[in-house]
């Protein structure tokens, strides 16, 4: 089982994720239409690029935009969730040892204590995101079972990973479950809302170009996100 999961399934899930997400990213930009969106993308490439980067970067900084500052609690749990969700899978020591064995390369690694803190942060923040969904009427009305499913899919590798890491119960069982959850997540990325991993950048870039090219970016100081 372990051999299968770390062999063919590893390649299949990673391939599906990378190829799928690349396809979606490319299709997004190929699908842009200057007349339908009413943005002259090609006429002002420099302004467009500047606007796109501005739009992306500001939103990647905690409290970097008016939107984030307006909702400090959401900002904290949002970044508490996403920072761990991005860094831990990529830079966890165990993942990189595996990578080294598998493909001969490894990335920089997180200190184990930091990895623990970030993993816990993902779980706690996911729990708070659920509470927020339940308690705030303006979020509850939007929430569907699908939203919980996506959250569950995202947090499952962290829960199972931590159980394995603390060696609670049967280590081999939890490690296998962790790998299954991780691979399920990777496969789901291109086909679900998790595609926002890439499409967040695409969507933010588009609105940034819209504001930079058409909606006043060339007048005065540009956009105060």
């Amino acid at each position: 089982m372990y051999e299968f999961l770390t062999g063919p399934m590893f390649w299949l899930s990673l391939g599906t994720c990378f190829i799928g997400i690349t396809v979606r990213f490319v299709l997004y930009f190929k699908g842009l239409n200057w007349q339908l969106e009413r943005v002259a993308y090609k006429a002002y490439p420099a302004q467009g690029l500047k606007g796109a980067l501005n739009s992306i970067l500001n939103w990647l900084i905690p409290f970097g935009t008016c939107g984030w500052r307006k909702q400090p609690f959401m900002t904290l749990i949002f970044f508490g969730f996403h920072i761990g969700a991005v860094l831990v899978p990529l830079f966890l020591l165990a993942h990189n040892i595996f990578l080294k064995e598998k493909i001969g390369i490894s990335l920089i690694t997180l200190h184990p204590v930091i990895a623990d803190i970030l993993s816990w942060s993902v779980i706690v923040c996911a729990f708070l995101l659920v509470l927020r969904r339940i308690s705030l009427p303006e979020v509850r009305i939007l929430t569907t079972a699908y939203d919980y499913f996506i959250l569950l899919l995202s947090v499952a590798p962290f829960v199972t990973g931590l159980i394995a890491r603390y060696e609670i119960g049967n280590y081999s069982f939890w490690l296998t479950t962790h790998i299954i959850c991780g691979e399920a997540l990777l496969i789901a990325v291109p086909f679900t809302k998790l595609s926002h991993i890439a499409l967040f950048f695409a969507s933010r870039a588009q609105l940034g170009m819209d504001y930079a090219i058409k909606r006043g970016g060339m007048k005065g100081k540009g956009m105060a996100w």
């Binding site: 949002f78 705030l136 979020v139 939007l142 929430t143 809302k193 499409l199 969507s203």
Partner: peptide, 18 residues
């Protein structure tokens, strides 16, 4: 097309627009 389709699809239902 892709912009609006993506907007409808990736809305995280977070309610920050409220």
């Amino acid at each position: 097309k892709s912009r609006t389709k993506t907007w409808l699809e990736i809305c995280a239902h977070c309610g920050m627009c409220a």
